[in-house]
Design a protein around this nucleic acid. Structure first.
Length: 261
DNA sequence: GCGACAG
DNA sequence: ATCTTGTCGC
């Protein structure tokens, strides 16, 4: 996997204005509709491959990417590729974090580490799940969208917090497992007001008890719709809040970080 | 000036 | 994101 659009590779030395202008270009090139190389219904983390009949399609390869940091100036990115819940490839990469974290410009801080890790994979994932936002972004060009458009590969963004946009209805203190609430575009987002730019998705929830789990914020990165993005994320979850690709990438990033320290 | 903000 | 062990609750 390599950049199909080199001009979109994040350049941390750009001025803030130039970064935002590039994001507008990326959003224009982004496809927020399904243009996949697989059937979302074939996505699974069920490792029961022996029981799959010959008429069933080969499960697609889903990759997860996550970052950890080495001090303040280096980012470690880890990518894990799975097929039917089985890890078939892994890779890590380290890149300089040339700029600080700035809401809305995350891809210019971590994007190159992510691209390097993905390029180090020996397989080309059918879909890549990236930690962070995709279309749920001021200029509809979050990290997942930036990476997806640069590689011209399907990506989805999975964030633990909402960057912008407005939930169709106020988020309750506790959403039941499986619940989905649309996140709409508002004055802070370049998309027409009311456009569904993602979903709050409750991947896991306790049935009883005082504490509750917060939802995930899923948004399309590139070549996928908001609805399908949630469908796929749901199919990759396996009892934990985070999708399996993300969980495994998270663990690998922590391990890689420890090794580099 | 105030508010709000992925990782 | 990161600094960080045990601990409270189910």
């Amino acid at each position: 996997m390599e950049p199909v659009r080199p001009a979109f590779v994040p350049d941390p030395s750009l001025s803030r204005e130039a970064m935002e202008a590039l994001q507008d270009e990326i959003a224009t090139a982004a496809v927020f509709d399904d243009d996949l190389t697989f059937d979302p219904g074939d996505v699974t983390v069920d490792r029961d491959g022996d029981q799959r009949s010959l008429v069933d399609a080969e499960p697609p390869v889903i990759a997860g990417v996550d970052q950890a940091f080495l001090g303040d100036d280096r980012a470690v990115s880890a990518a894990v590729a799975l097929r039917a819940g089985e890890v078939i490839d892994e890779a890590t990469a380290v890149a300089e974090t040339e700029i600080p974290y700035i809401p809305g410009l995350l891809s210019f801080r971590e994007g190159n580490a992510v691209l390097a890790a993905l390029q180090s994979l020996s397989v080309t994932p059918d879909l890549t799940v990236i930690d962070g936002s995709g279309r749920i972004h001021f200029r509809q060009a979050g990290l997942a969208t930036h990476v997806g458009v640069t590689l011209d590969r399907p990506t989805v963004g999975v964030a633990k917090n909402l960057l912008c946009g407005t939930p169709r209805e106020p988020l309750p203190d506790r959403l039941p497992e499986g619940a989905r609430i649309a996140i709409k575009s508002d004055a802070d987002v370049t998309a027409p007001d009311g456009t569904v730019i993602g979903y709050a998705y409750q991947s896991r929830q306790y049935d009883r008890g005082s504490t509750s789990i917060n939802p995930l914020y899923v948004s399309p990165g590139h070549r996928i719709s908001a609805e399908t993005a949630v469908d796929v994320v749901e199919r990759t979850c396996d009892g934990y809040k985070l999708p399996e690709p993300t969980r495994l990438a998270d663990a690998l990033a922590d391990k890689a970080k420890a090794d580099f320290e």
